[in-house]
């Protein structure tokens, strides 16, 4: 019997992340309230509903979408898009699965603030800020994978906030993950259609700078919003 289970989770969190404060408090942008009832009331394997919830979470998760838009901003080749999106998927799936299975609770406000930071980071990278301000550019693929871990942590933490039945936990969680990827592909298709229209309009390069400054602003707003939530909660 675990004498101090709280400490267990703290250790695990510290091992994994080092900087996250670990507790289960109110969530920031989570699964819609009406869907919570389903997740909590559900027992046993419910693959399709969990796929739907995962997809819905991704399609309506503006923080994930902003990051994705930043990542593919300057990717013209479909092959590059595929590589980066795959890296992002590998990153967030890893922490979604290990987070839920390991019962790792990370403060949702801190995770969401880091997700906001990922948007700022990518926008700054798109402005070529790393090369010009710091003199070197961190590997953009490694960065996508790295921030993918935090996006997955956000998913895992939100999924865990609800009393998921242990009956069928692994299958339901995998279904949720599949849903997340489906939602990501759906959202990505729309973003790509929009970007292609934008690029062929001839205004893309003229707008690119301002678009990334706006993206960075949105990232800063997400960070401030979540950090304030952390302080006042």
């Amino acid at each position: 019997m675990v004498v101090n289970s709280n400490r267990y989770s703290v250790h695990r969190c510290l091992l994994l992340l080092g900087l996250l404060s670990c507790s289960a408090v109110a969530f920031a942008h989570g699964i819609a309230r009406s869907d919570q009832a389903f997740v909590q009331g559900n027992t046993g394997m419910q693959l399709i509903p969990f796929i739907y919830l995962g997809a819905k979470h991704m399609v309506t998760g503006y923080d994930h979408l902003l990051f994705l838009a930043g990542v593919i901003f300057f990717l013209y080749r479909l092959r590059d898009v595929a590589i980066y999106v795959t890296l992002f998927a590998v990153g967030h799936s890893t922490t979604l699965l290990t987070g839920v299975l390991g019962g790792i609770y990370a403060d949702p406000y801190i995770v969401d603030a880091i997700i906001g930071l990922s948007v700022v980071y990518k926008a700054f990278d798109n402005l070529d800020g790393f090369q010009h301000v710091f003199g070197f550019r961190p590997n953009p693929r490694a960065a996508v994978l790295f921030f993918g871990f935090f996006h997955g942590f956000g998913l895992s933490t939100k999924l865990q906030q609800f009393a998921i039945s242990a009956d069928g936990l692994v299958a339901n969680m995998l279904a949720f993950n599949v849903g997340v990827e489906i939602g990501q592909l759906l959202a990505l298709s729309l973003i790509l259609v929009f970007f292609n229209l934008w690029r062929t309009s001839g205004n893309f390069l003229r707008h690119a700078w301002h678009a990334n400054v706006l993206l960075m602003t949105a990232g800063f707003i997400l960070m401030g919003y979540q950090l304030t939530g952390y302080i006042v909660s």
Binding site: F74, L75, L127, A208
Partner: peptide, 13 residues
């Protein structure tokens, strides 16, 4: 790698 430098208008420090 995608090369943002070429696309951006004023990428000065």
């Amino acid at each position: 790698e995608p090369e943002p430098t070429e696309q951006l208008q004023l990428p000065t420090r």
